[in-house]
Structure formats: structure tokens, C-alpha cells
């Protein structure tokens, strides 16, 4: 039996937040932000054709983590040195010193930090799983051709100038003609940044 094709492919790994973690997934026509607590998952979808821009903002995340891990390394290094000078074996402080040093180097190796925002026609959404610039560039580099392809029709065609509506007397000459129902702008899902909302009561249209 053929294996069922995956609908979503992972774009970024989980990035932890406060009590939850977030990741970015890619489908054929949309981007999905998955926020999980481990017990529930929330999905936010952004249609590729609705994405207007990305903002990449520099943050101090790397600096603060470096300061934290650096302080841990320094304090435990001093304690380990003092313990060693007193002819004792600094087991605990040496473990924490090593841990702090590894995390400090790891944090520096991840590169500068950033925050990425997606702009659509109706909202600006943060992508919490993209917090390092290198990773963000890689993800955006992967997304860019897909978004361009999804918006290819916009590239090719100039803004459509619609003909002016017929004057009122044109309708009067036709007894069967009725004023057409026009959708309100809010109800038009093509202009929204999210997937179209559906109204359970079908009586509206």
C-alpha cells in the first residue's frame, strides 16, 4: 500500500516560549504556525498568496542569554577554582561550569537573534519559531520562491480597472433585472490574511 503523502512539511524546529513551544509548517498553499503546550495544539494559517511582506527585527536575545550563561560559567569557575585551591574536588561547580561554558558557546554559535513578522492585508503576525537571524534567512529563502509563485498572477497582471457600473436607468429599462447582491469587504476571504472564516448559518448569503 502506498504511503499517504504528508500534507505539511516542517519549516522550523520547535522554539520554546513561556509554557508553550512553536514551530512553522508549510503546506502547498499556506504557512501554518503551530503553538503547542504538549496537551493542545493551536494552528494559525497564512495563505502564501496573502503574504505582503516580512519584517526581520534585530533583538537582544543573544546578548541576554550570553550574559546569563556567562555569569553562570564565571561564578562556577570561581567556586571551582577556590575549591580546588582548598585541596577539594570541585565536582558540582565543575559540572555547572562545563554546562555554562557549553551553553555560552552554543548560544554564540547560533548567531545573532531576531524576530520575524509576517504582514498580510489585515494583520501583522510574529513567527515565534524564528528567533535567530541565520535560521530566519534560511526559512525566508525557502519561502520566497513559493510566495512569488503563489503571487505570480499579481506579478503578471496590472491592477484591473473595472468598468463603471451602468447608470440606474439601464436597470429600469429591463423589468427582470434586480440589483445584484455584492459581498461586503469583510466577508471577502480573498483579501484577508487568514483562512476564510465560515459562518455556520447558511442563511446569510
Amino acid at each position: 500500500m502506498a504511503k499517504k503523502e504528508k500534507f505539511y512539511t516542517r519549516l522550523t524546529r520547535n522554539a520554546s516560549g513561556l509554557g508553550s513551544y512553536s514551530s512553522l509548517w508549510l503546506a502547498a498553499d499556506h504557512l501554518m504556525i503551530v503553538t503547542s503546550t504538549g496537551y493542545t495544539e493551536n494552528y494559525s494559517r497564512l495563505l502564501l498568496r496573502d503574504i505582503q511582506a516580512f519584517f526581520v527585527v534585530k533583538t537582544d536575545r543573544r546578548l541576554w542569554w550570553s550574559l546569563g550563561w556567562g555569569a553562570l560559567t564565571l561564578v562556577n569557575g570561581i567556586i571551582a577554582a577556590m575549591t580546588y585551591n582548598n585541596d577539594d574536588t570541585p565536582i558540582a561547580s565543575a559540572i555547572f561550569f562545563g554546562l555554562g561554558l557549553v551553553m555560552f558557546i552554543w548560544n554564540e554559535a547560533l548567531g545573532s537573534s531576531c524576530r520575524v513578522y509576517v504582514v498580510t492585508g489585515v494583520q501583522t503576525v510574529s513567527l515565534p519559531s524564528l528567533v535567530r537571524r541565520r535560521k530566519a534567512r534560511r526559512a525566508l529563502g525557502r519561502l520566497q520562491p513559493l510566495i512569488d509563485a503563489a503571487q505570480a498572477d499579481l506579478l503578471a497582471t496590472p491592477p484591473v480597472i473595472t468598468a463603471a457600473p451602468p447608470p440606474p436607468f439601464a436597470h429600469e429599462s429591463l423589468p427582470e433585472a434586480v440589483e445584484p447582491v455584492v459581498a461586503e469587504p469583510v466577508a471577502n476571504p480573498e483579501n484577508s490574511g487568514a483562512m476564510p472564516e465560515t459562518r455556520p448559518d447558511a442563511s446569510a448569503p
Binding site: R49, D50, I51, Q52, A53, F54, F55, V56, V57, K58, V119, G121, L140, Q144, I147, D148, Q151, L154, L155, T157, P159, V160, T162, H171, E176, A177, V178, E179, P180, V181, V182, N188, E190, N191
Partner: peptide, 21 residues
């Protein structure tokens, strides 16, 4: 900030309007 724009930012999407029967 760095900015990465896409065609949807500036393009106007055609919205088809209904025609009366």
C-alpha cells in the same frame, strides 16, 4: 528592521463583482 516585500503588497487584486441576471 529588514524588509522583504512581495507582490501582494503593491498589487491590486481583481475582485469580480456580480452581474444581475
Amino acid at each position: 528592521f529588514e524588509f522583504f516585500p512581495f507582490p501582494a503588497l503593491s498589487a491590486t487584486r481583481s475582485i469580480s463583482t456580480p452581474q444581475a441576471a
